[in-house]
Simulated scan of single mutants.
Amino acid sequence: MKADLHSYLKGGRDALLWKLDGLSEYDIRRPLTRTATNLLGLVKHSAAMEILYFGVVFGRPFEQELPYVGDGAEINADMWATADETRDEIVDLYRRAIAHADTTIEALALDEVGRVPWWGDAAVTLHHVLVHVIAETQRHAGHADIVRELIDGAAGLLPSNDNLPPADESWWLDHRQRVEQAALDASRRSD
């Protein structure tokens, strides 16, 4: 069971990192939603979550303190990259956070208990934390998929398996127009 959970976590991590491939500095940092969701910020946030949930929760401190999380941190500072933070630094941080998390996952049993200070010091098992972080990572990978599609049209699960129907660009344009027309028709009926 632990191997299955770990596999789903790894899949979300891979998808999240893939979304950065081939994009400019501007595009990986661009805020494309009202809440400023951006690709590099999603990776930075995910690194912090891995460090917190698989480090702090189980008393396994990470090698580096993150100034953008915890008491006194600026609100939402983990969700975007400053101009001084490089892509390489953030991706490297995420990879080191993953290695740290993987060490915790491999070392502990699923019923090992840790404490989550930001949940009122709640006691949780590694199993609970794994499920929580899988859900969060996959959710952010979905955000990244949409943001990446808004940037350059690239969509899908992974470069080797996009998990999309086999179709050419003209099919997608027709499909989008068909969905748009259905939305317009439905709105006219309800007005």
Rank of each mutant, 00 (worst) to 15 (best):
W80A: 14
D111N: 12
E85S: 02
E89I: 00
D71K: 06
T37P: 01
V69Q: 12
K19M: 12
N76I: 03
A144I: 10
H128S: 08
V91H: 04
I105F: 00
D174G: 06
P166K: 13
A109W: 00
G142P: 07
Y8K: 02
R87L: 04
E106Q: 09
E112K: 07
W171K: 04
T104D: 05
N76A: 11
D71W: 01
G22T: 09
V91A: 07
A36P: 02
I90C: 10
T103L: 00
L17E: 09
L32P: 05
D88P: 01
A77F: 13
A183E: 07
D88G: 02
V43P: 02
N76T: 04
H140S: 10
T125D: 13
G72P: 02
R189G: 03
Y26D: 15
V116K: 02
D102I: 05
N163E: 12
S187N: 07
A182D: 05
D92C: 02
A77N: 11
N163I: 04
T125F: 10
K10E: 08
L52N: 03
A107E: 07
A107P: 00
L39S: 10
W171F: 13
D92S: 09
V133F: 05
T35K: 09
I90Q: 08
Q177S: 08
H132Y: 08
E50Q: 06
L108Y: 03
S190M: 04
V131D: 05
L42F: 11
L157I: 07
V124R: 11
L110R: 01
G114I: 13
S187A: 11
V113E: 15
A81C: 06
L42R: 06
E149Y: 04
F62L: 10
S170T: 09
Q181P: 01
I151M: 15
F58Q: 13
A155M: 08
Y8Q: 06
D71G: 02
I98G: 00
M49S: 11
L110H: 01
L126V: 09
H143V: 07
D121P: 03
V129M: 03
I151F: 15
T86L: 02
L164Y: 09
G12N: 09
L66S: 12
D92T: 07
Q64R: 15
T104K: 04
D185V: 01
V56A: 14
K44D: 08
H132I: 01
L93C: 03
R139V: 09
A15Q: 14
H45A: 04
A186P: 01
A183S: 05
T33L: 13
W18Q: 10
R29W: 15
T37I: 06
L184R: 05
I134M: 02
R189W: 05
A15C: 12
S170R: 07
A123Y: 12
P61M: 04
I146N: 10
I151T: 14
K44Q: 05
A109Y: 00
H45S: 04
L184V: 06
T86N: 06
A83Q: 13
L173K: 10
I98V: 00
T37V: 06
N163H: 11
R188G: 03
D111V: 04
E169W: 00
R189P: 00
L9M: 09
R189E: 12
K19E: 12
L164R: 11
V57D: 14
N38M: 12
G156K: 12
W119Y: 06
F62G: 12
T104V: 02
W172S: 03
S24Q: 15
A36E: 14
R13H: 14
